[in-house]
Simulated assay, not measured.
Amino acid sequence: MLWAANPRPAYSTTPAASSSAAMASSAAEALSRRLGAAVRGLSGAWYGRHMAAAENAIRTRLPLVDLVLEVRDARIPASSAFEPLCRPTLEPDGRRVIVLNKADLADPSETKKWIAYMKQRSCSCVAINSHSMESVKELLNIVRSRMREIKHGESNCTATVLLVGIPNVGKSAIVNAMHQIGRIAAAEKGKLKHAIVSSHPGETRDISGYKVASHPNMYVLDTPGVLSSRFTNDDFVSRLALTGAIKVSLLQEYDIAQFLLALVNSHDEYKKWENLNQVGANVSFSITSTSRSPNKKRQYVSDHTQDFVVKSVRQILFDSVSSFKGGLGKEDEFSSLIDCQMVSLQEAFKISTESSEDMGKSVALKLLNLYRTGRLGHYTLDHVPDDWQEVAA
């Protein structure tokens, strides 16, 4: 399995900045371990009967398919590895392509390092965005090329591809896009089925086949997401929870949001928001204007995805971190900063509830949604091992 080093913030190399970053990172890691321990305390509640059945079905099909596409989250290339493929007895030697999906949400420079790392380990790897047809076309071309190699150029045959991965990495979105690109005749367009795509993990329950190409005829088998039945690495677990691979209903959203804010506070991304008060400060975000263009999206105060709300969230986070006078290396003071940010974000999200518990949950859900859609920056939480980077340099 590709184990990653702990995340390292990319601060400037000045002694003061490096020291501050290291202290903040240390406090963030403490929250990560706490969240990971909470998940492990659920005693495998995320691994239901459907996952066990899906894993057995995948095991059965592995020897029968021509190619395996292992989909991972580009933000966590190591944490999102499909555990069954890491066992020597199940490794589809030479028949696997690792697909780093959601590359549009990850740090591009880190994604390039991961692709180079995979290549060094003689493993095919491609980064894609399942919502970009051009990106999926690149993947489909790679699959076709590999199939020609496997089938020795034979065109009158049938090839099968098994799509596997943990929950919520975008497998169904990928198969739908491949399916749409590869439809072979107008007569089939209304008849070919599509996979159900959801932002919630665990929606795919059965293995389904979708035709994506002809000459040779190529079918992709979409499989349910499967997590390991137990975890030993708390950092991996917390990252899986943050990116949405583990059902939110099993966890406290507030705890996950706290971990998210710890990451934001200990990375460099928030510094890009320094000039929000100057850049575009005169832009009006009125929600009552009647001179709005017919094609312009109506702006609602309660819609946290609106640009003016996201701008306010970013400004609050930048101001709070920049003006923080406490000790970043002290977990209690670092947690106090996060609690203050959660309270301040209530106003940015226009949340008004009597219950502080409801308020915290609402803030957490909206904040997590902004992160998971890339509105709070592009973070890669898993980094390639240090020893590889030294060799590559």
Rank of each mutant, 00 (worst) to 15 (best):
A78K: 03
K151W: 14
A393L: 13
H194F: 07
R95W: 05
S43D: 08
A116T: 02
D358S: 15
D104N: 09
D387L: 09
N217P: 11
T111D: 10
V175M: 04
L337C: 01
N6L: 12
D268M: 04
H50L: 05
S344N: 04
T204I: 01
Q278R: 07
S355M: 03
A245K: 04
M218L: 15
D303Q: 04
R61Y: 09
S320D: 10
K247P: 01
A392D: 10
I115G: 03
I256A: 05
T111H: 02
D235G: 15
A392C: 08
G280L: 01
R298D: 09
K330S: 02
H383L: 14
K361V: 15
M1R: 04
E188D: 14
E149G: 14
K366S: 14
K272Q: 12
W388I: 12
K171L: 06
T380A: 07
D319K: 08
D255T: 11
A186Y: 05
Y11N: 14
Y270P: 00
N141C: 08
K151M: 14
V136L: 09
V68T: 02
L227E: 06
R87I: 05
L328N: 08
P15C: 10
I128N: 04
V161I: 08
A185N: 08
G225I: 09
R33Y: 04
S286R: 09
I338D: 00
